[in-house]
């Protein structure tokens, strides 16, 4: 089986699961460093922007953006997603997260 075929059968499987359990949802997770945590990456980009002719830039903070495709839609699923946002997708010691549906 070629890689392409494997990939295709994967898609078929996902479709089959979809059909069985109904609609899914797309959630977006934003993870940002907490204000107290130094963001040297953001500072470097801020400086670059100032150098490139925008001295008005006050600050830049760099975080992460994730798109997650999930089967199902119920509230219990959302509670579990929040759980994983806290345990895996963000580290509450240094980051805040926001889950958008």
């Amino acid at each position: 089986m070629t890689l392409f075929e494997t990939h295709n059968s994967g898609i078929a499987l996902v479709c089959a699961v979809r059909c069985k359990y109904g609609e899914g949802m797309k959630v977006k997770v934003l993870v940002m460093p907490k204000a107290a945590v130094l963001d040297p990456q953001g500072n470097a980009v801020r400086d670059a922007m100032r150098h490139l002719g925008m001295p008005e830039v006050r600050s830049v903070r760099i975080g992460k953006y994730m798109e997650i495709d999930v089967d199902g839609k119920n509230g219990e699923l959302e509670a579990r997603l929040h759980g994983l946002c806290r345990d895996l997708l963000s580290n509450p010691v240094i980051e805040d997260y926001e889950l958008q549906k």
Binding site: V37, L38, P40, Q41, N91, V93, I94
Partner: peptide
């Protein structure tokens, strides 16, 4: 160990990048 919660705090990107 920090991620697992066995030690407090976290390790982030070096200040120098």
């Amino acid at each position: 160990l920090c991620e697992a919660g066995l030690l407090p705090g976290a390790l982030v990107r070096n200040r120098s990048l």
